[in-house]
Amino acid sequence: MQRKLGFLFLLIFTFSASFSQSKIEKSETSLKKQKNNASTSTKRSHNLNNDNDSFGEMLVIETFGRLAINIIAYTAYGILVEMPFERDSPSSSAILTKHPYLNSNKGNYSYEWNDYSAVGRTTISSRYVFENTQLNGNHVNVDIRFYNRLALELDYLQLWENNPNFGYQTLAIYTALIKYHRIRTKQFDGWWGLGASYVDGNVDDFGFSLGLGAELFLGKPISIEANYNQTFINNNAINKFTALMNYYNRPFKLSGGYQSLKIGDQIFSTPTIGLSVSF
Rank of each mutant, 00 (worst) to 15 (best):
P84W: 02
N70M: 09
M83S: 04
F85D: 12
Y111N: 08
Y156E: 09
S92W: 13
S91Q: 06
M83W: 07
M58K: 15
K98L: 08
L80K: 11
D115Y: 09
V60H: 07
G65Q: 13
N70V: 14
V60F: 06
R145W: 05
L96M: 04
D143S: 10
N105M: 13
E153W: 03
Y111L: 08
A94V: 09
A94F: 12
T63W: 15
R145E: 07
G137E: 02
L96F: 03
S104I: 14
E82S: 15
R66Q: 06
D143L: 06
V142H: 01
F64H: 10
H139N: 08
R145G: 04
L59A: 08
N108R: 05
I61F: 10
L152A: 04
D88H: 09
E86H: 15
Y147F: 12
T133K: 00
R149P: 03
P90Q: 10
S104T: 13
L150W: 02
N136F: 12
D155R: 04
G137R: 00
Y101I: 04
A76E: 02
S117T: 13
I124W: 09
P90N: 01
N132K: 03
I61G: 08
S54K: 11
S104H: 14
A68F: 12
S92D: 12
A76D: 09
Y111C: 10
V129M: 00
N132W: 08
S54L: 05
Y128N: 05
F146T: 05
G56L: 00
K98P: 03
H99P: 05
V129L: 06
N141S: 05
E82R: 15
N138S: 11
K98D: 11
Y77A: 15
F55E: 06
G107S: 09
T63Y: 14
F146V: 02
L152M: 11
Y147T: 01
L102H: 11
R127D: 01
N136I: 06
W113M: 09
F55Q: 07
A118Y: 05
R145Y: 04
G78R: 08
S91R: 07
D115A: 07
S92R: 15
G65R: 15
S117W: 09
L159Q: 00
I71H: 00
L152V: 06
Y74D: 12
E82I: 12
L59N: 07
D143E: 06
F55I: 10
L135K: 00
R121M: 07
T133I: 12
Y74Q: 12
L154R: 05
T75Q: 05
A76G: 14
T123R: 00
R127E: 05
R127C: 07
R127G: 01
S104E: 12
D115C: 05
D88L: 11
E153I: 10
N141E: 01
Y109L: 03
Y77H: 12
N136K: 05
N105R: 10
T75A: 15
Y116T: 08
Q158I: 04
Q134F: 11
F130T: 03
N70F: 10
